[in-house]
Design a protein around this nucleic acid. Structure first.
Length: 458
RNA sequence: GUACUCAUAGCUCAGUAGGUUAGAGCGUCGGAUUGUGGUUCCGAAGGUCGUGGGUUCGAGCCCCAUUGGGUACCCCA
């Protein structure tokens, strides 16, 4: 049998993991700095938790787990042929793999509401699964790194999360643009165009502006049944360009009669003011901040601020996204809990750094400081005792597991980039010493065990 | 769900117009070298050319189908 792994999944070797840990540690460090606490949830959830949350497109991408045992038990064979695959699905699968970290978080909050102190801030770094067609920057199993705060309406949270995005990408040295928009502004735009009930159709179309241009957007809107008068109003909005202040001023003119629009603008203004205040007039962020009226985000649970982070140093989808949701916990029976959160796409960040040689500074050596050569017999016993002692002293050390040829053992040390090799031959044993060789310089010296320990402690 | 593209040794790839026994580099193993690695030299193992069918005197190469990988659309981190 030829071994293989499912399409869109990957194994991670030592060198890849060291790079992944570097990213994770950077993100985790900022999460902690901003006061978020860790959380992990199961890889599988009840399907009832997941369904109805991600829209039709998302629902198709859910991995469903076949019930254990005889999953056909209780299914009428005569009805089988008349059942749609969707109907059958609900009867033979009641669990699924998590699709994102936000819904499991909402589920967790509702289940533990009596124990949690609100506002509740948590971060979560775990894999999620989507039954998508893999391609560049897209995998079936990938990591999301989420930070969410729930139980507070304050836009201070939005400001902090913007800073959090900024800090992480500044540390990773990936120049990004943080795209900001507000669902209320989008809703007001649809309202102004007399198309409030077609918000989703409109956002799907305008989201493609930079890809297909204004003509393409108009074509898409036509296909979705939006008339030309409405299209003109929408196109007029999309012409708004410039600094956040300019964009907001122009929006204010158009939203003179829209309560929803005014609210969206006010929220955006407050957010920007917080950011300005933070640095006392200095440049608030290391990265670009842009009000992007075409930013919509597919998930329909967003109600206020929405985020998306993109880089233009390499061709890649968004590196992160998020936003405010007013009623995510409502579906689980807890009303009136507003929250806001952001997500980092670990795998895409990895791909960007890999392509731009952004990992150059990562230490790729292993942790082992010393390899003891195995000469067999009494020398092996002596070396095993020594390696035990070294480890008890907190030194990462290895003893080659068999008395192989010296050449082979030395090559092993090279391959693992182990900085020191220790020899314990007859001479060293009688003197209770070990000969330590520095693999980089080639220098070697016989020293007493105690000296060896103090030498090897960094 | 649609389209495009690729598939030869463990890995990365050559393979000329269809023509004898399918090659290289890296890696692995052995040797030069039984207590001193990186460099070097010598040698060895390793392939039903993704699979099935067809055309041909003859197919890794041409045709059809199929499977798998990649990419684009859709959607998304």
């Amino acid at each position: 049998m030829k071994p293989s792994i499912p399409k869109g999944t990957r194994d991670f070797g030592a060198s890849e993991l060291r790079k992944r840990y570097y990213i994770i540690n950077t993100i985790k460090g900022e999460f902690e700095r901003f006061g978020y606490a860790p959380l992990e949830t199961p890889v599988m959830e009840n399907l009832s938790t997941l369904t109805g949350k991600y829209g039709d497109e998302g629902e198709k991408l859910l991995y469903r787990i076949l019930n254990s045992g005889n999953f056909l038990d209780g299914i009428d064979a005569s009805q089988l042929s008349e059942m749609s695959h969707k109907q059958l699905q609900t009867q033979i699968a009641e669990k699924g793999l998590r699709y994102d970290l936000t819904i499991p978080f909402a589920r967790y909050v509702v289940m533990n509401q009596s124990r949690l102190a609100f506002p509740f801030k948590r971060y979560q770094i775990q894999p999620v699964w989507r039954a998508d067609r893999p391609q560049r920057g897209r995998y079936r199993e990938f990591y999301q790194c989420d930070a969410d705060v729930i139980g507070t309406n304050s836009l201070l949270n939005e400001a902090e999360l913007t800073q959090l995005y900024d800090r992480v990408f500044a540390q990773l040295k990936i120049p990004v643009t943080i795209h900001l928009n507000n669902r209320k502004i989008l809703a007001a735009m649809a309202e102004t165009a007399q198309q409030s009930d077609r918000l989703t159709d409109i956002t799907v179309a305008i989201d493609k502006l930079d890809k297909i241009g204004m003509d393409g957007v108009r074509r898409e809107l036509t296909e979705r049944g939006i008339d030309e008068i409405a299209q003109n109003i929408i196109a007029d909005f999309l012409r708004i360009e410039g600094s956040p202040e300019v964009v907001l001023a122009q929006l204010a003119e158009r939203f003179a009669n829209s309560e929803m629009g005014k609210k969206g603008i006010a929220e955006m203004k407050t957010l920007l003011q917080y950011l300005q205040t933070a640095t006392d007039g200095g440049s608030p962020l290391a990265n670009h901040l842009k009000i992007d009226l075409t930013l919509a985000r597919g998930l329909n649970y967003y109600t206020g601020t929405i985020y998306e982070v993109k880089t233009n140093i390499v061709q890649m989808g968004s590196l992160g996204g998020g936003g405010r949701y007013d009623d995510l916990t409502g579906a689980f029976g807890l009303k009136g809990m507003s929250g806001v959160g952001i997500s980092f796409g670990l795998d895409r960040i990895y791909d960007v750094l890999e392509e731009t040689k952004g990992f150059a500074q990562i230490d790729q050596t292993g942790t082992t400081r010393l390899l003891l050569i195995n000469f067999g017999g009494a020398a092996e016993q002596y070396a095993f005792r020594l390696v035990t002692q070294l480890r008890q002293s907190g030194i990462c050390a290895e003893l080659y597991p068999e008395p192989a040829k010296l050449d082979k053992q030395m090559k092993y040390a090279n391959a693992q980039q182990i900085p020191y090799v220790g020899f314990t031959g007859d001479e060293e044993m009688t003197r209770q010493q070990v000969k330590i060789k520095n693999m980089a310089s080639g220098e070697q010296k016989s020293v007493a065990i105690a000296d060896a320990i103090s030498r090897l402690i960094k």
